[in-house]
Design a binder for these strands. Structure first.
Length: 258
DNA sequence: AAGGCGCTCAACCGCGTCAGG
DNA sequence: TCCTGACGCGGTTGAGCGCCT
């Protein structure tokens, strides 16, 4: 049994969106909110597939999107997150307010990948290309309160990405990471409100429904099942900082690449 | 001036996951 | 418990643009 198409393809537009279509979509979502993408096109009077509407909204029309070039700090953060998460673009995007997974994915493939290759670093393993087959672990560690300014640009060639830490964690070089990390819950709301920080993590449905409330471990916020390796919800100290960083929005200012 | 080429990024496609019946 | 439908994600494609020859 084949998969049924997500929409009636015979009567849907494809390709670039027109200004009128954009306006219709924005107007509809402003009036009714997001959700139920399948029925949205019909309700909004659009000859588009629901998936197409969702993508257009998320990647282009959303009002909170930050347009324009990536900053050096964002570059740096993307590289670090990719070294931890692999091609989990949605998770990386969740840590970059105003950026979308598609945008980051494109940026990675067009800019960062090349940049890393130019430095002799394998963009997949984040290890020096000459050392790619070694099969050893990459030590990623972090040291808070060190300036990170343009560390990516200053990273010496043929050096693995590495940071220095109070608590050193070893991660397998395989992208299927065992994220056994000390982290903070993404929503320490009161504290974040005081600092005017907006939680950037999109919390998975199951986590919300499991009644975690505002006390999620970083693993859960990344979509790891509660209780699975990488989840530290049950830990007595659910308020530890993720690698010494604030929750919600990864503060990478204390990270350093060597 | 124009054709070729490479790059960028918006959009599409197919699959995995999950909730609800 | 199984099935189905909807959503979300990551990989891929291709139109449009700018640069080069």
């Amino acid at each position: 049994m084949g998969r049924s198409p997500c929409c009636e393809k015979a009567h849907t537009n494809k390709g670039a969106w027109t200004k009128e279509e954009d306006d219709r979509l924005v107007a509809y979502i402003r009036a009714h909110g997001e959700g139920c993408w399948r029925s949205l096109p019909k309700a909004a009077g659009l000859m588009r597939c629901g998936k197409s509407c969702r993508l257009r909204w998320i990647n282009y029309l959303r009002p909170d999107l930050k347009r324009g070039n990536f900053t050096a700090d964002e570059d740096d953060l993307i590289i670090k997150l990719h070294s931890l998460l692999g091609n989990k673009w949605s998770l990386i995007a969740a840590r970059l307010p105003g950026r979308t997974d598609n945008e980051i994915k494109n940026y990675w493939n067009t800019h960062i990948r090349r940049k890393l290759l130019g430095r002799g670093i394998d963009p997949v393993t984040h290890r020096p290309i000459a050392d790619a087959g070694a099969g050893t672990v990459t030590t990623i560690s972090f040291q808070p309160n060190k300036p990170n300014a343009a560390v990516a640009a200053q990273a010496p060639q043929h050096q693995p990405i590495k940071a220095v830490a109070t608590a050193v964690v070893k991660v397998p070089r395989c992208p299927d990471l065992n994220l056994d990390l000390c982290i903070s819950p993404p929503c320490q709301q009161k504290e974040d409100e005081e600092l005017d920080l907006k939680p950037a993590v999109v919390v998975k449905r199951e986590v919300l429904q499991a009644g975690h409330g505002g006390s999620l471990c970083f693993g859960c916020s990344l979509g790891i099942q509660k209780g699975a390796p990488g989840c530290s919800c049950s830990s007595s100290n659910s308020h530890h900082r993720f690698l010494g960083l604030r929750s919600g929005m990864l503060d990478f200012r204390g990270l350093e690449m060597k």
